[in-house]
Simulated assay, not measured.
Amino acid sequence: MGFTVGQVSAWAKVTVRTLHHYDRAGLLSPSHRSAAGYRWYDESDLARLQQILFYRALDFTLEDIAKILADPDANALGHLRARQRRLLEEIERLQRLTVVAERAIEVQQTGITLTPKERFEVFGDITFDLSYATDAQLKWGNSPSHQEAMSRAAAHTKEDWEQLMAEASAWRAELLVAFEDGEPPDGQRAMDVAEAHRLHVTRWFTPCPPDMHGRLADDFCADRRAFALVVPAAQQRPGLAEYLALAMHANASRHVSNSGK
């Protein structure tokens, strides 16, 4: 007594047609048949099927699987390592394609009116997280400040973006030096760095009063995708987002104090 093709199909979550194909290919032939010619699988057949499905999940061809299972002395580890290398290469290729796709869709999401060549020249390795752009649109799309920022971004020329990115790069250098020098986030130097960022946003995108800048600070801590827009992942340091947020809040408080004098 064994297991019918229907039972094996249900347990293994493969179609009956697949099991018949494995049988015809000589990869998994049931050990028994009933008097009426029906296939009956035993425990050893199920164990072999598990091996086949494991290799199939790793995208081995049926021919390769047959070779591995046919030779009890086959170096399965060697096959797995070779497959791992190919999968890592494929992952890398797909990641490159993802970046290209993101940059193409980015035009629609951000309104940046640059050619693909110009975008690569201006932004280099800096990429924009589309999921964050979409979330931001859903969250703030109806706010006048967000609409103005999108409109002004769309109007920037290549020369504008080059100047903007150069300013942003210089600002990041100042931030990193202050952070690595151990400057207190509520100290003059750190607050001046925060103020430079606030003025940068105002100059290039939308007026950014201190209270709005404080909300941006909270977003930098709550969502790393937001922080990556001002400090790319390659330049980030542990605690840097929190440091900048504290400096931004301290700078906002400084404005309140100064306005009361």
Rank of each mutant, 00 (worst) to 15 (best):
F54H: 09
T110D: 11
A222L: 05
R56T: 01
D186N: 12
A35D: 15
W40R: 14
Y243L: 12
D192K: 09
R254C: 11
A12Q: 11
A70Q: 11
G78E: 08
D73R: 10
A252K: 00
G26M: 13
D125Y: 09
L46N: 10
D129S: 05
L19R: 01
R96A: 14
D192H: 11
V8Y: 02
D192Y: 02
Y22G: 06
L164D: 05
L175I: 09
E90V: 05
K261W: 15
D64W: 07
S34P: 00
D135M: 08
H255F: 00
A12M: 10
S29R: 15
R198V: 01
W140N: 10
G26I: 01
L94F: 14
R152M: 09
T157D: 04
E148N: 12
V99I: 15
L58F: 13
G78A: 13
I68R: 01
A252H: 07
R152W: 05
A170F: 09
G214D: 08
L244S: 02
A173V: 02
L114W: 11
T134W: 01
T110F: 00
E89M: 10
E118W: 05
L97D: 13
V256L: 10
A74T: 05
R39H: 09
P144I: 00
R189I: 03
A66P: 00
E162V: 05
F128D: 11
L244D: 03
T134E: 07
Y38Q: 15
P144M: 02
Q7I: 05
E118T: 07
D73W: 04
D73E: 13
S34M: 12
E242G: 14
C208Q: 12
R152Q: 07
A74P: 01
